[in-house]
Design a protein around this nucleic acid. Structure first.
Lengths: 136, 136
DNA sequence: CGAAGTAATTGCATTTTGCAAGTATCTTAC
DNA sequence: GTAAGATACTTGCAAAATGCAATTACTTCG
């Protein structure tokens, strides 16, 4: 069940993001949709972090309610939904890249590509544009 | 109690950030320390989102365990601790500013300063440097 | 029609959160 | 030196969220 008024705690911009993304799963769905070409419920379930079906259904519902993503029936198979970012969702790209950069700097176990940091630092705007262009 | 091995779900950079910041409170503490000059347990408790004492104590402990912040006894009052960012913590500045920008763009209720977006877009590096310089 | 594929929902045990009250240590005022 | 206040927590318990396994519902394919 979606919290109907979503109990907004304040009008702080940091808090605003937490109202949607302040849990351990939502951002992984965004990641899969943004960087891994995943677009269906079944795709998201396959991720290595092993999200469970009830949590996935709940988070997709909330992301849609917050107008980060929208879904449509797949053209090739009408029993399937295709999830896509809204413009608001696409605007998360700079945040996601900045988060990736921080982890690349501070997590010695990070599996970010070896060239990520230098590519990002030398061409941030280009990388943002490239990710955006790669979303249909 | 801090999860001893913190059950790392994957080596994905997005997931790495979630392991520390994937809840509704931790980032508010970072915000207060980064932008509002708050440095003590009592200061953090005063924020409008009304964090409770047990959650605050737990999150400060985790932030310290993850080496985002460190605490020291206050010089003027030995019954008080002063919390400060580590270098790893200071490196969160670009993420926090990017998050603020996203909310400023997409939350009509946002209380971000009216000039924030234009200042940020025209001088991102300067703003990062300014915030950093403002941390002791 | 029946089997397979896709997207969920349900029930229940475990974990986390939120709230109120209590405790411990250090400082200040007399 | 002691009592009152300031500061930083801890504890106990009810409520909510999470995680897991099983089940349901709808669509497509043969």
């Amino acid at each position: 069940m979606i919290r109907n008024s979503d109990a907004c705690r304040s009008n702080c911009p940091i808090n605003f993001v937490l109202e949607t993304f302040g849990d351990r799963w939502t951002l992984l769905i965004v990641r899969d949709l943004m960087f891994k070409g995943k677009q269906t419920y079944g795709n998201f379930l396959e991720s290595e972090e092993q999200i469970s079906t009830n949590i996935l259904a709940d988070r997709l519902r909330r992301l849609e309610a917050h107008e980060i993503i929208q879904k449509e029936v797949a053209k090739d198979n009408r029993s399937k939904f295709i999830y896509r970012f809204t413009d608001k969702g696409k605007d998360l790209i700079p945040i996601m890249l900045e988060v990736t950069a921080w982890s690349a700097r501070h997590d010695s176990q990070s599996n970010a590509p070896a060239t990520f940091l230098s590519d990002y630092e030398s061409g941030r705007e280009q990388m943002i544009a490239a990710v955006r262009a790669n979303l249909d």
